[in-house]
């Protein structure tokens, strides 16, 4: 019985020290982690909407999921929207960030995360593919050529962008 108590005490002590240490490290790094995530988000946003000066997130519901971002220029004029979309590719969900002007034209897209076949599906991240989206109408994307040998991945990006653009348009209409 005394043995048991000693074991429990030892383990509890070690856990206590560990917890204290982790709390300290968390307090030190926590703000930095948030700042890094925010900076990364900003970098992604301004990459697909280079003209914008600042972005505000449009959130919904109690859990505050971000629906889309509004992009403003220096004079605080609304110049466009940025939204995230994801579509099932060949072996993963391909997530992309799209910047869109109010008239529906695309200002740029960026692939955020994917896990496709190297040499085929992975090529959707290349400028040769993403660059084609610039200036396209987000409703039909007729001018975007799918990559040879990687049609599934290419269409996953295109379809998810088109579908999400339609949803966002509806939301914006209701907003007004």
């Amino acid at each position: 019985m005394r043995e048991m108590a000693r074991y429990g005490f030892t383990l509890a002590l070690i856990c206590l020290v560990a917890a204290g240490l982790l709390a300290a490290v968390n307090a030190l790094t926590g703000p930095k982690i948030l700042a890094a995530a925010a900076a990364e988000e900003q970098a992604g946003l301004s990459q697909v909407m280079p003209l914008a000066d600042k972005f505000t997130a449009v959130k919904q519901g109690t859990d505050e999921t971000v629906l889309y971002y509004k992009a403003f220029d220096r004079q605080d004029k609304l110049i466009g929207f940025v939204f995230k979309s994801g579509g099932k590719g060949y072996s993963s969900v391909i997530q992309s960030l799209t910047g869109m002007f109010p008239d529906g034209k695309i200002s740029g897209i960026k692939i955020i995360s994917l896990n496709e076949t190297p040499g085929l599906g992975m090529r959707v991240t290349e400028e040769q593919f993403t660059g084609q989206f610039k200036g396209q109408n987000s409703m039909d994307l007729a001018g975007v050529q799918a990559i040879t040998g990687a049609t599934i991945s290419s269409y996953a990006v295109m379809d998810s962008v088109m579908q999400k653009a339609k949803e966002i348009k509806e939301l914006i209409k209701n907003d007004k």
Partner: peptide
């Protein structure tokens, strides 16, 4: 200080602490 019979859980707690520190620093 660590009794022989509970050494594995003790080691795991110690290791996990260092791993979490490493992870938090890397994230930051």
């Amino acid at each position: 200080f660590i009794p022989d019979r509970i050494r594995i859980p003790c080691y795991i707690v110690i290791i996990a602490t260092f791993v979490t520190i490493a992870e938090l620093c890397m994230k930051a």
